[in-house]
Write a protein that binds this DNA or RNA. Structure first.
Length: 481
RNA sequence: GGGGCCGUGGUCCAGCUUGGUUUAAGAUUCGCGCUUGGGGUGUGCGAGGUCGUGGGUUCAAAUCCCACCGGCCCCA
């Protein structure tokens, strides 16, 4: 697989085209599957996804979440218990109405999210305060019949995610869990070097059935924001309708309080690609790169043996050190072609080994993010590469946060907001908090109110940009996916 | 929700306006061989298409019409 020379890939000039090329050329995902909104994760892409899952699952389990796997089907009657939840999701539900030739007398649906699958079981499991808190998580696929235009990774009708669900004795404990959920997600996004804004969604945009919703929004090169994860405080809303009660120390029956949070893998992967990639292809953080190092032997006539055997020595040393390494000794390709190929795949470090290195027992190391070359001695190989991994990670992370900083601008008036929205920025505005003013923004400019910073008081600098009344909050406005 | 554009070998595309010299062109890719090898070597031979699907108009459809499927963009 090599990159298409007939096109020039421009991440900033034409993100859509660039991104589609990345998916195809770097074997991330293939959306040519013949059902709209469904696509295939290919080897390189799914390997990255698995590593993200692994980091997330490990952290969740460290924080006391048990791994579980619930069925993909939910019976209609369970789904229809919570009123807001139905309103929010029913238009997007895939129904199973038949089995063979027979019509089912109890229709089933493919989970769009699993609250209504999980709570009937929580009700069975929770009897006393000793059963709380109850925390679980599952990695699974969910199904939503999206009516907006689908895009691979960003918006599909089937998507990969991890969802966590917890039940608690009281609101305070649930609140602490919300914070923990946020910290778990931060841990993963930070490891990927992703920048984000953590917003409390406005009431009109919260998860159907939630008390409030938090969301991690991140920038995208095309000026839209990408929601990569959400955390919801559900209060007693679901507990009430699913009758999640427990007996407390005094022997009285009480309602549990619940939370849930979900991280979309497609979008998290999309952000990783979009934040770090460049016009030569992917640039992967070492922690999730399926291959962290590629060795390219450069055999000259008469010296093939020395070069190849030295390259194998290097390969085995790196493997022993636990570094994921691939040796590209395919003799049909020239070294230059291999450089381009592995740059497309975003492998963090390239090791070049030719007669020069074999003679000197050294290696030439090239880091993917800056293309900077260094030379190291064979004895120092592992340390040098580990050092580069650290440098690459720091660089990617810093660049991502700087870009976010760059994307964030202020606007004092609706006109200014309009013009900055046309520049595809994320704009901070003073807002009175009235939903009508938020809807007015949506009507007038190409973006919408995403919310206000969570746990960080921001003082509005002027009156509400829409109505001119006293502003109570600073709202973040942007185009969305 | 409203409007617009598009679908031709694995990929990018020419051809469509004005139906017929088109055996559907080219590049890339893929296979085999030689050559080459520190940033996309060159070359020879070969492979790959029911022109998205179905229907209609016509002596004749990649080309015109309709429906569906799939993709993209803009606006709300």
């Amino acid at each position: 697989m090599s990159e298409n020379t007939s096109k020039s890939l421009k991440k900033w000039g034409n993100f859509s085209e660039w991104f589609d090329d990345m998916l195809l050329e770097a074997q991330i995902a293939d959306d040519r599957y013949p059902v709209k909104g469904f696509s295939v994760y290919r080897g390189w892409g799914y390997s990255i996804v698995k590593r993200i899952y692994q980091m997330l699952e490990e952290k969740l389990e460290d924080e006391g979440h048990q791994p579980m796997q619930f069925p993909v089907v939910i019976p209609e009657d369970a789904f229809q218990v919570e009123e807001d939840h139905i309103k929010g999701f029913s238009a997007e539900v895939f129904w199973i109405t038949h089995a063979g030739e027979n019509e089912l007398d109890r229709r089933l649906l493919l989970r769009p999210t699993s609250e209504t699958a999980i709570y009937p079981m929580f009700r069975i499991w929770i009897r006393s305060h000793a059963d709380l808190p109850l925390r679980m998580h599952q990695t699974c696929n969910v199904y939503r019949y999206e009516t907006k235009a689908t895009r691979p990774l960003f918006r599909g009708r089937e998507f990969l995610w991890n969802e966590a669900h917890t039940a608690h004795a009281d609101y305070e404990e649930a609140e602490r869990q919300v914070k923990t959920g946020v910290e778990i997600y931060r841990h993963v996004y930070d490891a990927l070097g992703l920048s984000y804004i953590l917003l409390k969604r406005p009431d009109f945009d919260k998860f159907p059935g939630a008390v409030y919703s938090l969301a991690f929004d991140t920038w995208n090169p095309d000026g839209k924001v990408n929601q990569i994860g959400t955390v919801h405080e559900l209060g007693e809303n679901f507990a009430k309708v699913f009758q999640l009660t427990y007996e407390d120390e005094e022997g009285t029956q009480k309602l549990a309080h619940t939370t849930c949070y979900g991280m979309g893998m497609g979008r998290t992967l999309a952000a990783t690609i979009a934040h770090h990639g460049d016009d030569n292809g992917l640039v992967l953080p070492p922690v999730v790169a399926p291959k962290q190092v590629v060795i390219v032997p450069i055999p000259f006539k008469g010296k093939e043996k020395e070069v190849v055997s030295y390259a194998r020595e290097i390969e085995s040393k790196l493997k022993t050190a636990g570094i994921r390494v691939v040796m590209d000794d395919d003799d049909r390709l020239r070294p230059g072609e291999k450089y381009y190929k592995w740059e497309m795949f975003g492998v963090p470090v390239r090791v070049e080994v030719g007669p020069r290195e074999a003679d000197a027992r050294s290696v030439t190391l090239v880091r993917r993010d800056t293309k900077e070359k260094t030379v190291a001695r064979f004895e120092d190989l592992v340390g040098a590469i580990r050092g580069l991994f650290g440098d690459i990670y720091e660089n990617l992370r810093t660049r991502s946060w700087e870009r976010l900083d760059n994307e964030l601008v202020e606007a004092d008036t609706l006109d200014e907001l309009k013009s900055k929205m046309n520049d595809r920025r994320i704009v901070r505005v003073s807002w009175c908090g009235d939903p009508h003013c938020a809807f007015e923004i949506k009507d007038q400019v190409a973006g919408e109110v995403r919310g206000t910073l969570w746990k960080k008081e921001e003082k509005p600098i002027g009156p509400c940009v829409v109505c001119g009344d006293t502003a109570s909050e600073v709202a973040y406005v942007s185009r969305t996916y």
